[in-house]
Design a protein around this nucleic acid. Structure first.
Lengths: 359, 359
DNA sequence: TTGTAAGCGTTATCAT
DNA sequence: ATGATAACGCTTACAA
């Protein structure tokens, strides 16, 4: 079934059918009605390839997962991000296709790149989790291909959406400091990710503002996996002088960290307080409930798509850089007695706002 | 840059260039060499839309994640499956695009379906985790569109790749029985998934073979999430007569279950043995190490793609149904002293083979 | 082995 | 508002 036949059946020209299909307003009520009913009956649907060829638009965008963060893909963070992006795509009548930077060798990477980008399989791409040095970014920019990063990239003047990781982390650590903890350690994310670097900088900033030392002995890097959080916490617990509190760069790692604490026969926050980052509510499995920096993950995905769609419309426009808000969710793992705080203020989230403003 | 220009630059016709690009052997050495060098220089890459339009092939296949198992997407199982599928696609020079059954309403679902399938965005699709009643399956079959399921579907005569969930689960439970446990409970997966049903059937089968009762009080359903495993185990632990061992339908749920055991001040396998399903090695975080049914997840993804590609070649061929092997990985959570067993036999996996054959 | 020419199913540009 | 008609960039008989 093709346009031509629909045209014949409804007694109009191909062009008119095309107009109806594409929602062009310059069609008479009658013509539109007739064409639409024929389309319904015949269950016609326009051929994507022909459309793309003629319009030079695929209406497909890619979501690129750098293989550098392969392990991260099991992080629920990723799922929420994808879901946000997909929802936004649906609204815009775009398709979202997941691209894996399968980069076995550079050559292979190249083949994929050529195929997808040069072959015009997609109109633009969203790159998840920008790393410090990303050859893909350089290349896309050189080729003038529309793209947007989830996560800022200070080295290039490109479009991105992000949260202020530094400020958010600083607030989280300041909160721990308000609790009276002085010896605070941190479990960082992979050091090639800008988000990790920023979160660490926020931690360092808060400590220094209070005139406290940053002790390398209680600074450990993980890779955002639960296992790495577990191992990192083991290291921290065996430090000569164990930290009173730990700021962890992701909830998933914090989950592993909490388990390490339990396994050591200790408990949070009594023996050691823990603060996470992400705000993955559904993944909470048991006590203590994790206090964490909440970032709007789904919204990040959706915004990234929006920005990308704009860039596709006007490729020459200046890069867009957008920051979304975060807030602290104070529960039990940092030492806050959430139930208590909530009952005082009448709303479960009340305490958090107060404290947030105080920092 | 298009075919035409390459043709001009290398002094041949468009057809010859096309032949070179597509690896057609009917091209002289010289012509091929010349064309290839021009392609290199100009960094030409054929336009995907034009190609699809002319060849009626997109060289893209879709991987459909039913929204019914949305939560499952954070399960590492899923990542490994996707990775296997992507690798296979790369080899075949196909692209893999992730499709989300965003089905807010049926209408919406329909729009996506039309767009992707009827619009010929993909040549075929792999459907992950078949559910008992899947309207998508019925529809694809009716439309004669190539597809393959990951997970058997007894209600329709369709192509699929799977493991023998029933037999594998039966073996796992028989192993628990060999340990001497008699009161064995189970944490099932979602009951609309065929894999869950089969695994439960395997559990029931093993129990009945030994003349043991299946007590509903120690049979709890989860949803494959870690949290659900945690909650399910809490229920089991509070049963009037607590089980001595539990067969859990996924490693991720088993991880939650182990945590529930620890939180209750108990430990596995001393107070209660646990057996998982999947074989997610990298996700192991602490003691006890989970004993589990290992299924070749990546291979399932790769096989599914292979089968699909065959069906795309010959759509009229009879459905292909392929089963991959599983085996038990015996560690500490079921009561096996793995270290000991390994040192006796000289290889870490030795004990497992022995025991597997014994069952 | 190579070239010619006819599509592939749309969109887009003009007239009308 | 509608309809011809020319692209869009490639594949694929068929002819040579």
């Amino acid at each position: 079934m093709k346009l031509e036949e629909i045209a014949k059946l409804s007694g109009v020209s191909r062009s008119t059918v095309s107009r109806v299909v594409n929602g062009d307003p310059h069609v008479s009520k009658q013509a539109r009605a007739r064409v639409q009913s024929v389309i319904e009956e015949t269950k016609f649907y326009p051929n994507a390839a022909a459309r793309s060829l003629a319009s030079r638009r695929t209406r497909v965008i890619g979501l690129l997962i750098p293989k550098a963060i392969g392990s991260v893909m099991t992080d629920p963070f990723f799922l929420y991000l994808v879901q946000g992006a997909v929802a936004e795509c649906n609204d815009a009548d775009y398709l979202l296709t997941l691209l894996f930077d399968h980069q076995v060798e550079d050559l292979d990477n190249d083949r994929i790149y050529q195929r997808i980008i040069k072959g015009r399989h997609v109109d633009g791409i969203v790159i998840v989790s920008s790393v410090v040095e990303d050859p893909m970014v350089v290349r896309l920019q050189k080729d003038g291909f529309p793209f947007v990063l989830v996560g800022r990239n200070p080295k290039h003047d490109v479009s991105f959406v992000d949260v202020d990781n530094l400020a958010a982390s600083r607030k989280a650590v300041l909160h721990l400091l308000e609790h009276g903890y002085r010896r605070i350690g941190t479990i960082m994310g992979p050091q090639n990710l800008i988000a990790s670097i920023d979160r660490y900088a926020g931690y360092v900033g808060a400590m220094q503002e209070m005139g406290l030392p940053v002790d390398k002995e209680i600074t450990v890097a993980g890779d955002f996996s639960r296992r790495s959080g577990y191992r990192a916490m083991k290291v921290l617990l065996s430090a000569d002088h164990r930290p009173e509190a730990v700021f962890v760069a992701s909830d998933t790692m914090a989950s592993g960290a909490l388990q390490a604490i339990r396994d050591a026969g200790l408990s949070a926050p009594q023996n050691i307080a823990v603060f996470g980052f992400d705000g993955l509510e559904h993944e909470q499995v048991s006590q203590p409930i994790l206090s964490t920096v909440v970032q709007p993950i789904g919204a990040l995905g959706a915004e990234a798509v929006q920005v990308l769609l704009n860039r596709i419309e006007s490729p020459e426009s200046a890069p867009v850089q957008r920051y979304l808000d975060t807030h602290l969710r104070l529960r039990t793992s940092c030492g806050c007695d959430h139930i208590h705080a909530a009952s005082i203020r009448g709303s479960p989230e009340g305490g958090e706002t107060q404290l947030l403003q105080a920092t």
